[in-house]
C-alpha cells in the first residue's frame, strides 16, 4: 500500500445472501482527497462504505486501511431514529463511549461539544432534542459527531439526501472548508449536478468501478449510461458538467 494511501480496496466483492452487490472492485483513497461515489440505488455504494468501515463482511479480496486511522462516519439521516430520547450534546459525546465509562457528561466534554458545534455554526443547539432541528442542522449535528473523534477520514452516506437546495449549498461549502483544512472525505451521493459535479474526484459505481477521475472526464454520456443503464446527456455550463436525464415520455396534464 502506498504510504499516503489511507484506504486500498483490491478485488473486493461483497454479498447479501446469494447475490453479489459489490464485485471485483479496486479503489484507492489517498490522504487529503475528496472523493464522491455515484451510482443508482442498489448499486452497492453503501455496502462498499460499510465494507471499508468493517461493518459488512468482505466475501473476496481485501481492504487495507492505513494503521491507526480514525474514521468519522455520517450515516444517511433517513436511518436515524429522530424520536430517540437524546439531546444534541448526548449524540456528539457518544463517540467517546469506548474511552470513557463515566455516564455523566464532564465540563471538558461540554466545552469540546460547544467548540465543535461552533465550528459548524450551530453552537446554540447543544441542549435541544434531535427532533427539534431543521434538516441542515440535523446533518451538521451528525457531521459534528463524526468530527468530535478528530478523524483522519470522514465517510458520509448521501449527505444531501432529502435536503433543500440552500441546505445542500451549505453542506457543500462546509465540506469544502473541511477538505481545505486537510481532512480526507469519501462520500456517496445521488446528486449528480448539485454535489458530484463539484467534487475533485468522482467514482461512477455500479457493483464495480465504471469510471474514476475528475468529474469533467468521468461525467460523459457513455459512462453515465453504463452506470445508470439509462441515456443521459451531459452539457457544460460555466465550465461545469451538467447532466440532463432523458425521461421516457412527457407526462401531460389535463387542460391546455
Amino acid at each position: 500500500m502506498d504510504v499516503q494511501s489511507l484506504i486500498t480496496c483490491e478485488h473486493v466483492s461483497c454479498t447479501y445472501g446469494n447475490s453479489a452487490v459489490v464485485e471485483d472492485t479496486y479503489l484507492q483513497i489517498g490522504r487529503g482527497e475528496f472523493v464522491g461515489i455515484v451510482g443508482p440505488s442498489g448499486s452497492g455504494k453503501t455496502t462498499l462504505l460499510k465494507a471499508i468501515m468493517g461493518t459488512h463482511p468482505v466475501a473476496h479480496g481485501s481492504i487495507t486501511l492505513q494503521q491507526h486511522i480514525t474514521i468519522g462516519y455520517v450515516p444517511q439521516v433517513e436511518t436515524v431514529d429522530w424520536y430517540f430520547p437524546v439531546t444534541v450534546e448526548e449524540v456528539i459525546v457518544m463517540t467517546r463511549s469506548r474511552t470513557t465509562w463515566w455516564p455523566r457528561i464532564t465540563a471538558d466534554e461540554r466545552a469540546a461539544v460547544r467548540d465543535v458545534l461552533g465550528k459548524l455554526g450551530i453552537a446554540d443547539v447543544a441542549q435541544r432534542h434531535i427532533r427539534e432541528l431543521s434538516g441542515g442542522q440535523q446533518q451538521r449535528v451528525f457531521l459534528a459527531r463524526a468530527m468530535f473523534r478528530n478523524p483522519d477520514i470522514l465517510i458520509m452516506d448521501e449527505p444531501t439526501s432529502g435536503v433543500d437546495v440552500r441546505t445542500r449549498h451549505e453542506i457543500l461549502h462546509l465540506l469544502a472548508d473541511l477538505h481545505a483544512s486537510g481532512l480526507t472525505i469519501l462520500l456517496t451521493t445521488h446528486d449528480l449536478n448539485g454535489l458530484a459535479a463539484h467534487l475533485p474526484r468522482l467514482v461512477c459505481f455500479n457493483k464495480t468501478v465504471i469510471a474514476d477521475g475528475n468529474p469533467r472526464e468521468v461525467l460523459t454520456s457513455q459512462v453515465l449510461e453504463a452506470t445508470y443503464g439509462a441515456p443521459m446527456e451531459v452539457l457544460e455550463h460555466g465550465g461545469m458538467p451538467i447532466v440532463v436525464e432523458h425521461g421516457p415520455t412527457r407526462v401531460r396534464g389535463e387542460g391546455k
Partner: peptide, 8 residues
C-alpha cells in the same frame, strides 16, 4: 452501525 465504527 456508527457505534461499531467508533470502536464499540
Amino acid at each position: 452501525d456508527v457505534a461499531q465504527v467508533s470502536g464499540v
